[in-house]
């Protein structure tokens, strides 16, 4: 299923479901974020956190830590603008089914906190049905996108 406004991603990487591999990819993306510039320190924190949560979700919940399953990452970076798509090989999920972790009743449960942070920190986040692909974008407040 194509996103009508899905950007062209010049960089595509596939990694096995391994958190160490994800860490290395995160380090590479962070390095490129610094090089391309246009983001404030707070915006880089936001991207790093959303990326961490999305990759951990894909590896742990999507692929169930099965190393034979891959996580497919495609991204585009330009000054003050970051677009990324992360796809796992799991069955997907409906983000609307995830309980609200800010509800006092759920506050102590491990539920959707990562998803909440991703939504807060990125300008755009969409799950493509059946929910195993997440598309996120962040653009700088400074209007350099």
């Amino acid at each position: 299923m194509n996103q009508p406004d899905s950007p062209h991603y010049p960089t595509r990487v596939s990694i096995p479901s391994d958190l160490e591999e994800a860490r290395q990819l995160q380090d590479q993306i962070e390095q490129q974020l610094m090089e391309v510039g246009g983001f404030s320190e707070a915006e880089i924190f936001a991207i790093k956190l959303a990326l961490e949560e999305a990759l951990v979700n894909a590896i742990k919940h999507g692929n169930q830590m099965d190393r034979s399953k891959m996580v497919h990452v495609a991204f585009r970076l330009e000054t003050g603008r970051f677009d990324i798509q992360i796809a796992d090989e799991g069955p997907g999920f409906d983000p609307d089914d995830v309980p609200d972790c800010t509800d006092p009743e759920n506050l102590e449960r491990p539920c959707g906190r990562g998803l909440l942070l991703m939504r807060h920190y990125m300008n755009r986040i969409d799950y493509i049905p059946p929910g195993n692909i997440v598309v996120m974008s962040k653009w700088s407040k400074n209007g350099q996108a």
Binding site: F45, L49, E52, E53, L107, E108, P110, R113
Partner: peptide, 16 residues
């Protein structure tokens, strides 16, 4: 300088 939601889960359990 940085922590993720997985770490928050541990803090909640510790608090409990």
């Amino acid at each position: 300088e940085f922590l993720s939601s997985a770490a928050l889960g541990k803090l909640i359990t510790l608090n409990k």
